[in-house]
Amino acid sequence: MKIFWRIILALGIIIALVVAYFLVFVYFKPHVDYLKAEVDIEIAGEQLYREFVDDPLQAAKTYNGKVLLVEGVVENIEYLDDMTIAVMIYDDGFFGKEGIRFTLLEGQEKYLLTGRLNRLKGYCTGFTGADVILEHASVH
């Protein structure tokens, strides 16, 4: 009988450890730190934009969900509520100036050089038909 309870106790401890592991390292794990995230693809801004315009599906397969390091001229910075968006412009379309829009991580705008070449790292969420969107972006 003693052995039976020991087995039950051991199983209980194992289950508790598995549940604790799941909660700590899976369910409640922290968000990806995009400031420190490794770059998947390095690319020029204009090339990235043209690839999405020319073949949106192929570009989505290649770039969506990837951390990109994009080099290009930041023409404009927009402030919307608590969001700061850096814009590289490559075309003039239905929505006005179109290109790549980077939603910056907090405090990154102070490193931007407007009107000059910048290297911005961010998570690519896709192409709206007007702009390529990169989020959690930082200046490198």
């Binding site: 969506n64 690519c124 969420t125 896709g126 192409f127 709206t128 038909g129 969107i133």
Partner: peptide
């Protein structure tokens, strides 16, 4: 017309 990026 509205466009929504699912990954956003």
């Amino acid at each position: 017309r509205m466009q929504i990026l699912m990954l956003s």
